[in-house]
Amino acid sequence: MDVATKSFKQGGNAMLTSRTISANDIEIFLLEQGEGPLVLLCHGWPELSYSWRHQIPAIAAAGFRVVAPDMRGFGRTSAPADILAYSLFDTVGDMVALVAALGEKRAAIVGHDWGAPVAWHAALFRPDVFSAVAGLSVPPPSRGRGRPLKTLRDGGITNFYWQYFQAPGVAEAELERDVGLTMRTLLGRGFSDAAASLFVEDGKGFLGNPCADRPRPDWLGEADLSYFTEAYQKSGFRGGLNWYRNLDRNWELTAPWQGAQIHQPSLFIAGSKDSVVTGLIGGKRIADMERVLPNLKRKLIIEGAGHWVQQERAAEVNAALIAFLRAAQ
């Protein structure tokens, strides 16, 4: 039992445990609790399996076996040196291999932020393995007409945060300069704070003008912030940033699924103040998601919530996920 488990309440019919398991040629650290049908919880950036600390015991208590891994490149999971090892084929492959390594053949999969594209594509690529899918904060895939980074450049945009993250070492240097301040800034403001522009001003970096005495939001305890900080002080940010360095490559790799639909039961949850979904592109994808998800059971927009929705509004997210997972059995 590691230090993270001390922050969880008992739930389900088994205590929370942690272990590292070999799958898809990497070592995957995971948190696990409960017995029953398997549910995988995939976190985003810059997060960890710990981001699901409110969901794991609740879903386990509802009669499920819940597994939340540190995703490839994050926390205590392997971080391959090769940037090309972070494509959707690799990250989805990790989840397929994890299901098998856990001794299961089927699973429901839930993802938040970058974990949402993993969940959506897992359901798209392997409907034989993933029986139901839920995405938080990031709508289902809508493969555009061109490579994402090239599309930005062609539109005259050169300072979007995706572009800032591309050059190896640049964002790492900024984010690792003071990891505690970085995590306080990123988790404290999310993508809903007016100061959290997704466009990077010259000389300011992604964090803008971070403030060391920035107040924590109510949902983020000092112990939670310390957990994230200590983990990223050990791992650095390179692994997670490499996911962004495969944006154009993911577009190329997913060409065979142009216009494809996800037919399994699906659920979407987001906060009303999350700029990922309130912007022009995000808003359009929210409105059109039934084209990709013909079996969408619910589209839940939680009023007043920001980007870290499963941490900010745990009770509402838990209720929606549990109802969905029960109905999908």
Rank of each mutant, 00 (worst) to 15 (best):
T91V: 14
D128N: 12
F228Q: 08
Y232N: 08
P294M: 00
V170G: 07
D178S: 12
L225G: 09
Y50N: 08
P294Y: 00
A255E: 15
P37R: 03
L136E: 02
G306Q: 00
S197E: 02
K284P: 01
F8P: 04
Y244E: 09
L321C: 06
P37Y: 01
E303M: 10
R245N: 01
Q310M: 14
A4D: 07
G34H: 04
G180F: 09
W308D: 07
P127K: 00
A60G: 12
A134L: 09
N13L: 10
S51A: 15
M15Q: 13
Y164N: 11
L207F: 07
Y164E: 10
I322L: 09
A14H: 10
T5I: 11
T185I: 03
A100K: 14
K234Q: 14
A194Q: 09
T17F: 03
A255C: 05
T229G: 02
L220K: 05
R298A: 15
F130E: 04
M183A: 10
Y86P: 15
P46S: 03
E316G: 13
D90E: 13
W114F: 12
F29T: 06
W308T: 14
L149Y: 01
A116F: 05
A320M: 05
R145S: 15
S197Q: 07
E104G: 12
W114D: 09
I157N: 06
G259K: 00
R72K: 14
V96F: 03
S192R: 03
A194G: 15
L253A: 15
N159Q: 02
K234N: 07
N13I: 13
V276E: 00
L181C: 10
L267D: 03
N24E: 05
K299H: 08
